[in-house]
Amino acid sequence: RTAFSSEQLARLKREFNENRYLTERRRQQLSSELGLNEAQIKIWFQNKRA
């Protein structure tokens, strides 16, 4: 289980509010910017949509 920092969570929530689905390219960008792997971001979005 991933423990996200408050900064990472704030960024993910802001991104989710703008778009509930990420393109592969956007997921790669977020992964690089947040220091998370793409799978972690993908799962976070899946869980948030559920």
Rank of each mutant, 00 (worst) to 15 (best):
R1F: 11
R1D: 15
T2I: 12
T2Q: 12
T2S: 11
T2W: 10
T2N: 12
A3C: 15
A3G: 12
A3M: 12
A3P: 13
F4T: 03
F4Q: 02
F4M: 10
F4P: 05
S5K: 04
S5L: 04
S5P: 03
S6R: 09
S6E: 14
S6H: 11
S6V: 11
S6N: 10
E7P: 04
E7A: 07
Q8E: 04
Q8S: 03
Q8A: 06
Q8K: 03
Q8R: 01
Q8F: 02
L9M: 07
L9N: 05
L9R: 05
L9G: 02
L9Y: 05
L9T: 06
A10H: 07
A10M: 07
A10I: 08
A10K: 07
R11H: 05
R11Q: 07
R11C: 06
R11S: 06
R11F: 05
R11T: 07
R11N: 04
R11D: 03
L12R: 00
L12W: 01
L12Q: 00
L12D: 00
L12G: 00
L12A: 00
K13Y: 13
K13I: 15
K13G: 09
K13Q: 15
K13W: 15
K13H: 15
R14H: 12
R14V: 11
E15T: 02
E15C: 04
E15D: 02
E15W: 03
E15F: 04
F16S: 02
F16G: 01
F16P: 00
N17F: 09
N17V: 08
E18K: 13
E18A: 08
R20M: 10
Y21C: 07
Y21T: 08
Y21S: 06
L22M: 06
L22I: 09
L22E: 04
L22Y: 01
L22K: 01
T23G: 08
T23R: 03
T23C: 05
T23D: 13
T23V: 03
T23L: 02
T23N: 08
T23F: 02
E24G: 09
E24Q: 12
E24N: 11
R25S: 13
R25L: 12
R25C: 09
R26P: 01
R26E: 06
R26I: 06
R26T: 06
R27H: 05
R27K: 11
R27A: 15
Q28M: 10
Q28R: 11
Q28D: 05
L30C: 02
S31I: 05
S31K: 03
S31D: 00
S32K: 14
S32C: 09
S32P: 01
S32N: 10
S32H: 13
E33V: 05
E33M: 05
E33C: 04
L34R: 00
L34V: 04
L34M: 07
L34G: 00
L34I: 08
G35K: 05
G35N: 08
G35E: 05
G35I: 02
L36K: 01
L36D: 00
L36W: 02
L36C: 05
N37V: 06
N37A: 13
N37H: 12
E38I: 08
E38Y: 04
E38V: 09
E38A: 08
E38P: 11
A39R: 10
A39H: 12
A39C: 15
A39F: 12
A39M: 14
Q40Y: 08
Q40C: 14
Q40D: 15
I41K: 01
I41V: 08
I41M: 02
I41E: 01
I41N: 00
K42E: 15
K42Q: 15
I43D: 14
I43P: 00
I43M: 11
I43H: 11
W44S: 01
W44R: 01
W44K: 01
F45C: 02
F45M: 02
F45A: 00
F45W: 15
Q46L: 08
Q46R: 11
Q46W: 09
Q46A: 11
Q46N: 07
Q46S: 09
N47T: 10
N47D: 09
K48G: 06
K48C: 12
K48Y: 14
R49V: 10
R49Q: 10
R49E: 08
R49I: 12
A50W: 09
A50M: 12
A50Y: 08
A50R: 14
A50T: 08
A50L: 10
A50Q: 11
